[in-house]
Design a protein around this nucleic acid. Sequence first.
DNA 1: TTCCATTTTGACCCTCAGTGCCATTATTGT
DNA 2: ACAATAATGGCACTGAGGGTCAAAATGGAA
Lengths: 197, 197
Amino acid sequence: MASPTTHPGVGRPVVTSRAEIERVAFHLFIENGFVSTTLDDIASAAGIGRRTLLRYYRSKNDIPWGQFDDTLDGFRESLRSYADRPVQEAVHRAVIDFNRFPAAAMAEHRVRMRLILTTPELQAHSVLRYADWRRVIAEYVAERTGTDPEALLPQTASQVALALSMTGYGEWLADEHADLPAVLERALLTMRSYLAD
Amino acid sequence: MASPTTHPGVGRPVVTSRAEIERVAFHLFIENGFVSTTLDDIASAAGIGRRTLLRYYRSKNDIPWGQFDDTLDGFRESLRSYADRPVQEAVHRAVIDFNRFPAAAMAEHRVRMRLILTTPELQAHSVLRYADWRRVIAEYVAERTGTDPEALLPQTASQVALALSMTGYGEWLADEHADLPAVLERALLTMRSYLAD
DNA sequence: TTCCATTTTGACCCTCAGTGCCATTATTGT
DNA sequence: ACAATAATGGCACTGAGGGTCAAAATGGAA
């Protein structure tokens, strides 16, 4: 495989990195659009073979997501750290923490999320990426409520978290100066008042 | 184009119908799985050319959705019929009505939705199909609250409706004897209690 | 220094989805 | 019979993705 080297140092060294590929790919995506950019374009711009590119990323759609799965462990830990809070609050806080980024990384995050949430192909694909993220939430809620992750409450919790993230990001992307945690908070309040009608 | 004939009767008549294509396609999907069934398989089984098949459906992923867009007008009307109810209740009732099917059609609907919601490719694609459905809700809520469909409340309403549908269908598919309207009602109650924690 | 085990690379070939183009075909109306 | 019309389907092309495998580049052992 690409990243997780079993025997470090042994064997032919890698010729590139995910970071480098993403740098090149985002440049092309922004320049020519996601759909118009072919895997060949990215591979040759990165100076690697197309086949190698597809070993670093399972599909073209996965490139904009970068190292998303690697953040899920931290998300799990974050959830556990709120064990003393009510379940809904714990999930909400963890989701907000999940969306905290250093100021220096915000501009890049905006570009990435705008690309993902405005490109139909990537919008569709996002369900599959968010499925893992939702599973983390469902498993946490199931554990805390002594139920199955597939049960109604854990599934509801994970779907609510996704819905809040979607509306939150919509607002965030529409306002260049918006603060992500603040926007997610507003989204929750809005959802509460909508359902309490 | 395929279905909407501008000058009825004039020109070469159609050789098939969406209903016929779907009948054949579902048979193959169930027999061999969605991914393993190629467009060529479907086209030849339906006795039409692959090119013709792709005129009836924009993509392979759209085939399982059948005439979904055609139901959106009825959905819009259904929403309007609840103008005397509070917004959230109106949306909820319309969503439940949207998911009412004659008993004879239930078995087919189960097969269709199980295929869509358990096939990763179709799960992903569903976002794009549900986007139109969500837009109907957002526009309705925007109209009733005097806001823009892109504003936070309309978007929240539409995302909540989607989340409820997703959890509802999950429960419904897991229980062969479940009633869709009843399950959607339970999903709403669960979401309310989760958020009121 | 040389060989060897190990690991990544990328070339080649294949399948399948989807699009553009366009001649062919089967209708209705004149 | 002859337009006008509209669906059909064949052909060629692009692009995503997967399988296979020989070549390349390392570290370590002899």
